[in-house]
Design a protein around this nucleic acid. Sequence first.
DNA 1: GACGAAATACGACACCTGCCGTATGTCGCA
DNA 2: TGCGACATACGGCAGGTGTCGTATTTCGTC
Lengths: 219, 219
Amino acid sequence: MSKAMTVIVADDHAIVREGLKMLLSTMADVTVVAEAADGEAVQVLARSEPADLLVLDLGMPGVTGIQFIADIRAMAPRMKILVLTANVEPRTVRAAIEAGANGYLTKNGDPAELADAVDALRANDIYLAQSIRFAVSDPARQTLPSATDEALSPIPLTRREMQILSLAAQGLTAREIAERLGISPLTARKHRENLMRKLSLHSAAEIAAYAVRIGLPIG
Amino acid sequence: MSKAMTVIVADDHAIVREGLKMLLSTMADVTVVAEAADGEAVQVLARSEPADLLVLDLGMPGVTGIQFIADIRAMAPRMKILVLTANVEPRTVRAAIEAGANGYLTKNGDPAELADAVDALRANDIYLAQSIRFAVSDPARQTLPSATDEALSPIPLTRREMQILSLAAQGLTAREIAERLGISPLTARKHRENLMRKLSLHSAAEIAAYAVRIGLPIG
DNA sequence: GACGAAATACGACACCTGCCGTATGTCGCA
DNA sequence: TGCGACATACGGCAGGTGTCGTATTTCGTC
């Protein structure tokens, strides 16, 4: 019927990309036209050759969380974004959708859901993995994402805080972080302090555990 | 020529399993006969229905590192073990091989390596991913793994150290750990010190990241 | 141009950490 | 019986952390 749907596959693991490509290629009217291994490649593709669909692993290097989705959404407003990640924190799911993602799959889910998700997105629906559907379906949030922004907002971190989170997660001290970013150790410390308050974390260990769990780039 | 090679695919992400199965099914004489999503399932399969090959993701829940490989090797001595992980620490690669793994692939590597690795293992060779080959090829380690045990052995932790690792990973201080275990804070501290030396970790953050990455129960 | 958000920067204080010692009791195994 | 591994326990010291302040500059947006 309609012409083939073009897809960009973005995941830092080549083996996972290959698996996704094979899974997608079994679907009718789906063509994988490009792949990306880091956030920058995704941005370049979104700007120069946006496809109909982007399958995006949130744990990639250079993909600093939710803000990245909003950036891609801004670059390629008509491209569907299907987030694929191991992360199942309700907060992140909500935030991803509000930032402009059209679907959210977990790596633990039934692989058949990938096909369902692609179909749903093709029909301009939003698709959430079975296992996390409850997270967004609570009655207080039935309104369209475009409406409420400031309500229970998904703890937005600033760009700087995102950087500090990533570096602190690697066990770097405030001084080391400051050196890498070319700022004062006291400033690095203050950024960390702020992000810890936002995320309700209380130690370096909790920062690291949190970062690994949400699949932040650790390298 | 020969009969088909039976394979068990073990990864906690269903989508990755599915991708691996598709990749493997494109190879001649390879049949995926089972899959597992956690360490326990792998052990059950190894005991009851060992296959010719186990493709094992080291990052799975219940797969507590190197010791797990040795256990599987003991349960099914004739089953080839192909380790697949994002981890590229030379130490881990060496330890995995010494514990009885027959191959080591990284998730970042060229997917074509999977076929190469399967072929190599079928021919009773050991296969290492291109990107990490240097790690084990240093001349000082050319001896057979069966010979040297005490040398750089695969980092055994005592029961107590395991407990402390788990608690420290949650961000607990020495005092809090001591309270939970009913021992002196100074003793808890010493246990932590010892396990850190064994694992070459140097901060609470690294402990937490390590624990989450190897899938320790996080409480 | 005015306002707010973000980024920058500094200080103080109690506490914890990572690293270095040492020492004693228990238990298994050769 | 004795050796070695493990668990227990204590202390010092330099440095880092977590939490509380305050203050200036830069930047986007209304």
